[in-house]
């Protein structure tokens, strides 16, 4: 099942999105371009600010780390130079995590990262911030048993069942199939990583490239992420243009 999305549902923020997938629910909002604090102002480009707020408790180093990753990735796709001396403020509120998340015993910032990336892109789209390309992100887990098939965007239950895990990988691809972000955790060889990367590219990007081999088919596999994103945007545009078609 693909992720569920509600776009532009908050009335104060310039753009917002609620993204629900595999038990993770994230609310994202974007304000921008807005006035920037004097000390953060950059003469030739926009400042990007990312806030990640956990479901319970105050932000910890884990959230700060995620913020840095998101900041660097998003800054590369936002056309910051076309809106200089402004601020693009992205706030991501984690609404709920799957029950099993806390007992996974793996790096939980990696399991969360693709959801945060997808939410922030949707919120940016909803706020109509100029972007150079889109971004899709996916999580891949490699169980430690021999000849195990890599799990593609596994649910927390899948991960729990597949324990112990050898490595976790998060990939983010741009619309033109370029690798934007990779975070990996655990032990793995170059070949394994390459396989995982190929698999992620297949899910994240549309057509072209290598076909998935038989053995890599995963049960309950979601469709292509870029296609899903296109559907979401299509619905958004249709909704915004309905005044034209109605008569």
């Amino acid at each position: 099942m693909g992720p569920e999305v509600v776009l532009s549902h908050l009335h104060r923020a310039d753009g917002s999105a609620t993204y629900t997938h595999n038990g993770y629910c994230v609310i994202g909002s974007v304000n921008g371009p807005i006035e920037v604090l004097r000390k953060d102002e950059q003469p030739e480009e926009a400042t990007v600010e990312v806030n990640v707020r956990p479901a319970a408790g105050v932000g910890s180093p884990k959230e700060r780390h995620l913020e840095t990753l998101l900041h660097n990735t998003l800054r590369s796709i936002i056309l910051t130079r076309s809106i200089p001396r402004t601020l693009v403020q992205i706030t991501l509120q984690i609404r709920s995590l799957p029950e099993e998340d806390s007992v996974l015993g793996v790096n939980t910032s990696l399991t969360l990262l693709p959801h945060l990336l997808n939410t922030s892109l949707l919120a940016l789209l909803s706020a109509s911030i100029p972007l150079s390309t889109i971004l899709t992100s996916v999580l891949i887990a490699i169980p430690s048993s021999k000849n195990a098939i890599p799990l593609l965007s596994p649910t927390a239950k899948d991960l729990l069942r597949a324990k112990p895990l050898r490595s976790l990988h998060v990939f983010a691809f741009s619309g033109d199939r370029k690798l934007l972000l990779n975070e990996s955790y655990g032990s793995f060889g170059y070949e394994e990583w390459d396989d995982a990367c190929e698999m992620a590219e297949e899910v994240c990007c549309k057509e072209g490239g290598v076909e998935l081999s038989e053995g890599m088919e995963v049960e309950g596999q979601q469709g292509n992420l870029e296609e899903w994103l296109r559907q979401v945007v299509k619905r958004k545009v249709e909704r915004e243009q309905r005044w034209r078609t109605a008569d």
């Binding site: 908050l10 104060r12 923020a13 917002s16 609310i27 909002s29 304000n31 807005i34 806030n51 707020r53 408790g57 105050v58 403020q89 706030t91 509120q93």
Partner: peptide, 15 residues
């Protein structure tokens, strides 16, 4: 009880 405002509700709220 912890109530913290975030920029989500209004850009005037600062973390």
């Amino acid at each position: 009880i912890v109530a913290e405002f975030s920029p989500m509700a209004s850009p005037a709220f600062e973390v």
